[in-house]
């Protein structure tokens, strides 16, 4: 990775991140967190910031398909990796099933936890298309919701899974 020092001696690094199918090459400081890179550099503000310590899951994105807290990953560490954010789920103006079922089941109140919640659910359904309720609850245990009490969120995720079963098709 190329590093260039500025006039104050602070180094900057050239990184390329593959986000929602597009490649972005940017110059970042070592202390740039992935969540701030997404929000501030790329205007991908669907990824939210909550506790910023890895407790709340608001900033959950997929890193090489796995749910991770983007507040605890340096942009330089994500160099060359595949990232999916909430903005990457809808295709051709069509919502992902998880997004649609969150609406159908009123799994959204204030909405702040929703992107992270959906990304954790997305990682689960990709790995395990037929989860039990227990598995759903375990998968979103790292995503805190302070409004709905999780019941409708769990229903929405299970509905998204069943729908995939019913139609016999995977994700796009």
């Amino acid at each position: 990775m190329q590093a260039i020092a500025d006039k104050d001696g602070v180094k900057r690094y050239l990184v390329t991140l593959h986000i929602n199918g597009d490649s972005y090459t940017r110059v970042v400081k070592a202390n740039t967190l992935l969540v701030n890179f997404l929000r501030d550099d790329l205007d991908l503000t669907g990824t939210k910031k909550g506790c910023e310590l890895g407790d709340c899951g608001s900033c959950t994105v997929l890193l090489d398909g796995k749910a991770v807290d983007s507040c605890l990953i340096l942009a330089v560490e994500a160099d060359g990796r595949e990232i999916t954010t909430i903005e990457g789920l809808a295709r051709n103006e069509k919502l992902d099933r998880l997004q649609a079922e969150m609406i159908n089941h009123a799994g959204v109140q204030c909405g702040y936890c929703t992107p992270g919640m959906i990304m954790s659910a997305k990682a689960l359904l990709t790995r395990n298309p037929h989860p039990t309720e227990r598995e759903v609850r375990q998968a979103i245990a790292g995503n805190l919701c302070r409004c709905t009490g999780y019941v409708n969120i769990v229903k929405a995720i299970l509905a998204a899974a069943n729908e995939e079963v019913g139609e016999g098709s995977g994700d796009e």
Binding site: G57, L63, K66, S120
Partner: peptide
């Protein structure tokens, strides 16, 4: 340990 996101990293 932690939660799923933490365990992935």
């Amino acid at each position: 340990i932690g939660n799923n996101q933490i365990r992935n990293v």
